[in-house]
Amino acid sequence: MENYEPTVVAFCCHFCAYTAADLAGTMRLQYPTNIRIVRIPCTGKVDVRFLLEAFEKGADGVYVAGCLEGDCHFLKGNFRAKKRVALAKRILEDAGIGGERLEMFNMSAAMGPRFAEVAREMTERIRKLGPSPIKRPKSTAHSAERKEHRV
Protein backbone atom coordinates (compact mmCIF):
# COMPACT_ATOMS: atom_id res chain seq x y z
CA MET A 1 0.00 0.00 0.00
CA GLU A 2 2.89 2.33 0.68
CA ASN A 3 3.93 2.33 -2.94
CA TYR A 4 0.38 2.73 -4.10
CA GLU A 5 -0.06 5.25 -6.87
CA PRO A 6 -3.71 6.02 -7.61
CA THR A 7 -5.11 6.37 -11.08
CA VAL A 8 -7.20 9.49 -11.35
CA VAL A 9 -9.21 10.24 -14.48
CA ALA A 10 -9.99 13.89 -15.18
CA PHE A 11 -12.72 14.77 -17.65
CA CYS A 12 -11.64 18.22 -18.78
CA CYS A 13 -13.60 20.71 -20.79
CA HIS A 14 -11.84 21.80 -23.98
CA PHE A 15 -12.62 25.47 -23.32
CA CYS A 16 -11.25 25.78 -19.81
CA ALA A 17 -9.66 23.03 -17.77
CA TYR A 18 -7.99 21.40 -20.77
CA THR A 19 -6.47 24.71 -21.79
CA ALA A 20 -5.56 25.35 -18.17
CA ALA A 21 -3.69 22.04 -18.19
CA ASP A 22 -1.77 23.24 -21.23
CA LEU A 23 -0.98 26.47 -19.46
CA ALA A 24 0.19 24.60 -16.39
CA GLY A 25 2.58 22.73 -18.66
CA THR A 26 3.81 25.92 -20.32
CA MET A 27 4.34 27.46 -16.90
CA ARG A 28 6.33 24.33 -15.97
CA LEU A 29 4.16 23.75 -12.95
CA GLN A 30 4.56 20.40 -11.25
CA TYR A 31 1.51 18.20 -10.80
CA PRO A 32 1.14 14.47 -10.17
CA THR A 33 1.52 12.09 -13.06
CA ASN A 34 -1.42 10.09 -11.69
CA ILE A 35 -3.86 12.22 -13.65
CA ARG A 36 -5.25 10.81 -16.91
CA ILE A 37 -6.91 13.59 -18.86
CA VAL A 38 -9.88 12.94 -21.13
CA ARG A 39 -10.68 15.95 -23.26
CA ILE A 40 -14.38 16.63 -23.77
CA PRO A 41 -16.07 19.39 -25.78
CA CYS A 42 -17.97 20.58 -22.69
CA THR A 43 -18.64 19.09 -19.26
CA GLY A 44 -22.27 18.99 -20.41
CA LYS A 45 -21.13 16.03 -22.50
CA VAL A 46 -20.28 14.08 -19.35
CA ASP A 47 -22.75 11.30 -18.75
CA VAL A 48 -23.21 9.30 -15.57
CA ARG A 49 -22.32 6.24 -17.65
CA PHE A 50 -18.84 7.64 -18.47
CA LEU A 51 -18.13 8.35 -14.85
CA LEU A 52 -19.14 4.87 -13.73
CA GLU A 53 -17.29 3.28 -16.62
CA ALA A 54 -14.08 5.01 -15.59
CA PHE A 55 -14.39 3.32 -12.20
CA GLU A 56 -15.26 -0.01 -13.82
CA LYS A 57 -12.14 0.26 -15.95
CA GLY A 58 -10.03 0.72 -12.87
CA ALA A 59 -9.91 4.39 -11.91
CA ASP A 60 -9.39 5.00 -8.20
CA GLY A 61 -10.76 8.50 -8.48
CA VAL A 62 -12.47 10.61 -11.12
CA TYR A 63 -13.09 14.30 -11.46
CA VAL A 64 -14.82 16.57 -13.88
CA ALA A 65 -13.31 20.00 -14.50
CA GLY A 66 -15.50 22.56 -16.21
CA CYS A 67 -15.70 26.28 -16.72
CA LEU A 68 -16.48 28.71 -13.94
CA GLU A 69 -20.18 28.86 -13.25
CA GLY A 70 -21.79 31.30 -15.65
CA ASP A 71 -18.91 31.01 -18.14
CA CYS A 72 -19.89 27.81 -19.95
CA HIS A 73 -19.29 28.04 -23.68
CA PHE A 74 -22.63 26.26 -24.10
CA LEU A 75 -24.26 28.29 -21.34
CA LYS A 76 -25.47 25.49 -19.04
CA GLY A 77 -23.19 22.52 -19.70
CA ASN A 78 -21.29 22.84 -16.43
CA PHE A 79 -24.51 23.09 -14.45
CA ARG A 80 -25.77 19.91 -16.08
CA ALA A 81 -22.47 18.24 -15.24
CA LYS A 82 -22.76 19.37 -11.63
CA LYS A 83 -26.13 17.62 -11.26
CA ARG A 84 -24.90 14.48 -13.00
CA VAL A 85 -21.83 14.33 -10.80
CA ALA A 86 -24.11 14.63 -7.77
CA LEU A 87 -26.21 11.68 -9.03
CA ALA A 88 -23.14 9.61 -9.83
CA LYS A 89 -21.77 10.31 -6.33
CA ARG A 90 -24.95 8.86 -4.84
CA ILE A 91 -24.73 5.80 -7.08
CA LEU A 92 -21.08 5.25 -6.16
CA GLU A 93 -21.98 5.58 -2.50
CA ASP A 94 -24.78 2.99 -2.84
CA ALA A 95 -22.52 0.67 -4.79
CA GLY A 96 -19.97 0.76 -1.99
CA ILE A 97 -17.27 2.54 -4.01
CA GLY A 98 -17.64 5.79 -2.15
CA GLY A 99 -19.00 9.08 -3.48
CA GLU A 100 -15.95 11.00 -2.31
CA ARG A 101 -13.90 9.38 -5.07
CA LEU A 102 -15.70 11.61 -7.58
CA GLU A 103 -15.67 15.39 -7.65
CA MET A 104 -16.51 18.38 -9.81
CA PHE A 105 -14.23 21.42 -10.14
CA ASN A 106 -14.59 24.71 -11.97
CA MET A 107 -11.79 26.80 -13.43
CA SER A 108 -11.04 29.10 -16.33
CA ALA A 109 -8.53 28.59 -19.16
CA ALA A 110 -6.25 31.11 -17.48
CA MET A 111 -6.03 29.16 -14.23
CA GLY A 112 -3.01 26.98 -14.89
CA PRO A 113 -1.88 27.03 -11.24
CA ARG A 114 -5.38 26.08 -10.12
CA PHE A 115 -5.33 23.11 -12.52
CA ALA A 116 -2.13 21.88 -10.93
CA GLU A 117 -3.53 22.46 -7.47
CA VAL A 118 -6.71 20.49 -8.21
CA ALA A 119 -4.63 17.66 -9.64
CA ARG A 120 -2.54 17.53 -6.44
CA GLU A 121 -5.59 17.86 -4.21
CA MET A 122 -7.48 15.05 -5.91
CA THR A 123 -4.45 12.76 -6.08
CA GLU A 124 -3.85 13.29 -2.37
CA ARG A 125 -7.48 12.64 -1.52
CA ILE A 126 -7.53 9.39 -3.48
CA ARG A 127 -4.16 8.33 -2.13
CA LYS A 128 -5.59 8.66 1.37
CA LEU A 129 -8.72 6.71 0.43
CA GLY A 130 -6.61 3.89 -0.93
CA PRO A 131 -7.20 1.84 -4.06
CA SER A 132 -10.73 1.53 -5.44
CA PRO A 133 -12.64 -1.16 -3.53
CA ILE A 134 -12.97 -3.13 -6.76
CA LYS A 135 -9.20 -3.62 -6.85
CA ARG A 136 -8.73 -4.69 -3.27
CA PRO A 137 -8.91 -8.31 -2.22
CA LYS A 138 -12.06 -8.83 -0.18
CA SER A 139 -10.30 -9.17 3.17
CA THR A 140 -8.50 -5.83 2.72
CA ALA A 141 -11.74 -4.14 1.83
CA HIS A 142 -13.20 -5.43 5.05
CA SER A 143 -10.40 -4.13 7.21
CA ALA A 144 -10.63 -0.77 5.46
CA GLU A 145 -14.33 -0.67 6.25
CA ARG A 146 -13.69 -1.45 9.88
CA LYS A 147 -11.16 1.31 10.06
CA GLU A 148 -13.70 3.76 8.64
CA HIS A 149 -16.19 2.76 11.29
CA ARG A 150 -13.74 3.49 14.06
CA VAL A 151 -13.15 6.99 12.66
Partner: peptide, 19 residues
Protein backbone atom coordinates in the same frame (compact mmCIF):
# COMPACT_ATOMS: atom_id res chain seq x y z
CA UNK B 1 -31.27 1.65 -22.42
CA UNK B 2 -29.46 4.39 -20.54
CA UNK B 3 -30.80 3.28 -17.16
CA UNK B 4 -29.92 -0.32 -18.02
CA UNK B 5 -26.32 0.75 -18.63
CA UNK B 6 -26.06 2.88 -15.50
CA UNK B 7 -27.63 0.26 -13.26
CA UNK B 8 -25.52 -2.54 -14.73
CA UNK B 9 -22.39 -0.51 -14.24
CA UNK B 10 -23.32 0.27 -10.64
CA UNK B 11 -24.15 -3.38 -9.91
CA UNK B 12 -20.87 -4.61 -11.39
CA UNK B 13 -18.93 -2.05 -9.37
CA UNK B 14 -20.74 -2.99 -6.19
CA UNK B 15 -20.20 -6.68 -6.72
CA UNK B 16 -16.54 -6.23 -7.58
CA UNK B 17 -16.14 -4.24 -4.39
CA UNK B 18 -17.72 -7.16 -2.55
CA UNK B 19 -15.33 -9.51 -4.29
Amino acid sequence: QKEVEILSSALRLARKAQG
